[in-house]
């Protein structure tokens, strides 16, 4: 009896979480153009999608930004996490606390404040501003992920390397980096998906010349949801799922 309650409860939770997504995926294979009535299976929306040059451009732009931003954020974030856990300096704890506040601040606040900054600096919104914004909001996630990993191992290992003749550079590349690599990769994948998915911040900081996928979709659905969009969203969701799953296994791996 108890078991049954547990199972039904779990089913309810997962249904709540996944029914919207499943609906979207199912309808991306629906023949009908305007109705939500099932008219039979088709792949034509995917084919159509491939022919939509505007959408493909936006998709390519999104991938470019996500890739470059996540790589930069991972580089800076990894070094930052290393510095915070490795060197003692004044305000170290406050510094790390500030990282969390960036992570928690609402997207709309981030978006507006970044826009204000760019305007103040006289920068024209476009690829560069978008990239900087994405690096900014990805950075804390990388730092937190990598920092947790660094904290997890014996700090004496660094002393041992130094004792055996390693300088700072060698300590980082031969000892720290190999040991935190799974966390670095996880942080990178997380950044990649965050950047790929972002709508609100991007809305403020990109210009008309540089269209990215989530914003393109957003403008499309204002005129009604097209089945191509369903297809596109399905592809996006699967990409995100793959990245998140990979990140999860990378952080879990070797922990035991």
């Amino acid at each position: 009896m108890k078991r049954w309650i547990g199972i039904s409860w779990l089913t309810a939770v997962y249904a709540f979480l996944y029914i919207p997504l499943l609906t979207l995926m199912v309808y991306s294979f629906n023949q009908a153009r305007f109705t939500t009535v099932w008219k039979g299976f088709t792949l034509k929306w995917y084919v159509k999608l491939m022919a939509n040059q505007q959408l493909l451009d936006a998709f390519f732009n999104s991938l470019t930004v996500a890739l470059v931003a996540s790589v930069i954020a991972t580089g800076i974030g990894t070094l930052g996490a290393f510095a915070v856990s490795h060197y003692r300096f004044a305000g170290r704890k406050i510094f790390f606390g500030l990282i969390y506040s960036v992570m928690m601040s609402p997207d709309i606040v981030m978006g507006i404040s970044l826009l204000m900054l760019f305007v103040l600096l006289g920068m024209e919104t476009g690829f560069l501003t978008l990239l900087l914004a994405h690096v900014t909001f990805c950075l804390p996630f990388v730092m937190v992920t990598v920092h947790a990993r660094i904290r997890g191992f014996d700090s004496m290992v660094v002393d041992a390397a130094r004792d055996l003749g390693a300088g700072e550079f060698q300590i980082f590349f031969r000892i720290i980096l190999p040991m935190i690599l799974p966390a670095v990769l996880a942080g990178w994948l997380l950044s990649f998906t965050l950047s790929l998915d972002d709508v609100i911040i991007s809305f403020f900081v990109t210009g008309p010349a540089f269209e990215i996928l989530p914003l393109k979709i957003y403008s499309m659905v204002r005129l009604g949801v097209k089945p191509e969009v369903n297809a596109l969203c399905t592809i996006l969701f699967l990409m995100t799922l793959a990245a998140v799953t990979a990140a999860h296994f990378l952080t879990k791996e070797r922990e035991q």
Partner: peptide
Amino acid sequence: ACDRDVNTVFQSYALFPHMTVFDNIAFG
């Protein structure tokens, strides 16, 4: 430390977990 002709056996051993026994010993 890296320029001293001194080596230490640490209380917690502090071996490099991502290396084999050989690579640990060969590190220096």
